[in-house]
Nucleic acid binder design. Structure first.
Lengths: 210, 210
DNA sequence: CTTGACACATACCAACCGGTATGTATGATG
DNA sequence: CATCATACATACCGGTTGGTATGTGTCAAG
């Protein structure tokens, strides 16, 4: 008698998820403000009744995209590999060289969803800014924590300021992605990452250290 | 009999200039797509008749802002100091430390106008992308040329790839500005610039070189 | 003084936007 | 079977947008 309905199989949750993903794609293409609710509905084949049943308004939908799409993506992609490593520099180098960052070349030209939203929404809406900045700060904290572990493991020089350096690494990476998105050149992107890679090398502890 | 009317004093050019600057401010605050034509008119005290007399449409106005406001600004601010220097690293360091980059703290939170527009418009409109990328590429070229001069003058290491490095420097700087705009922290911004400064130091030629 | 082009102002429009009000099919529950 | 909430679909609304059509003041030329 009890129908099977865990969190993932309930049909209403599936439609909700479909809308979140369609909204993410639309926002990724056009930004949040220019994202068309109608287009999201066209993409999903759903209607306004469906959307506004699950979300009170467009803004809430956008915030939900951050929490339920972008954050999990970033967590799996960028946070996870760094969470327990004691060689953060090696791990970061591997991350930079992993081609997974631009599997789909079309996706590269759209840039980093997090950065896109930060640039657009932070000056315009405080709610967005706080949520986006929390995600960004989490990222920086993950990198900083990894750098500190690297210092204890003597992979990282003792005199590097973990927090500032982590902030810079993430900023420079986002900068590289952003600039390459305009240039539309994978070569330029790789060249840029190479320089970032060189910078990471300068953080390495000298072999002579204890 | 001949009225004094050089390029700057003609009244119609003044109104045009007023609109360009108001448009720049509005775009800087809200991005191009979200920029309201009506708001620009309110700011200038002018009307639609005036605007559409000087510009055929909103898009042309936006492109004119890039050519006639942003480009001159960037040229004076970032290009000029690098144009003939033979110590690019010192010049760049000075540029980074010059507080002129954030005279008005409110302006900092709005980010770099060039980068803002690139992030927003490049994936959405090819005309914008080409024009913005040309300006960005000019910037990179100026830095690259300076680095090459620095190599001849033995301030810069011979093994640095001027073009890639210039691209990275500009990208990282834009990244720092962008991230700090979200964080809304001048301290974070300065910390980020400090790391960029450290990176620049690693480009210095060793004293022992010829 | 007249003319006519330029530089705007005023009034207005069609299109589209996010959001709402309401109708309906489904399915669980008592 | 009756009831009632959930999960949507359909139709529509007020507001705003970029853009246009037209009117008007100014000013230089003839």
């Amino acid at each position: 008698m009890m129908k099977r309905m865990n969190a993932t199989t309930k049909t209403s949750d599936l439609t909700r998820q479909k809308m979140l993903e369609a909204a993410f794609a639309e926002i990724h293409r056009n930004g949040f403000q220019a994202a068309s609710v109608s287009q999201i509905l066209l993409d999903t084949g759903l209607t306004k009744g469906a959307l506004y049943h699950h979300f009170p308004d467009k803004k809430t939908l956008g915030l939900a995209v951050i929490d339920e799409v972008i954050r999990p993506f970033m967590t799996a992609m960028m946070f996870a590999p760094l969470l327990e490593t004691e060689q953060p520099l090696s791990t970061l180098q591997a991350l930079l060289q992993s081609k997974s960052m631009f599997n789909d070349p079309a996706e590269v030209m759209l840039g980093c969803p997090l950065n896109n939203l930060m640039q657009e929404m932070s000056p315009v809406d405080e709610t967005f800014r706080v949520k986006l900045n929390a995600l960004f700060q989490d990222w920086v904290d993950v990198v900083a924590a990894a750098l500190k572990r690297g210092q204890q493991a003597s992979e990282v020089r003792q005199d590097v300021l973990a927090n500032d350096t982590a902030f810079f690494i993430v900023s420079a990476l986002e900068g590289c992605i952003g600039m390459s998105k305009n240039t539309q050149s994978v070569a330029a992107f790789n060249g840029c990452l190479m320089q970032l890679s060189h910078y990471l090398e300068t953080l390495k502890a000298t072999k002579t250290a204890a």
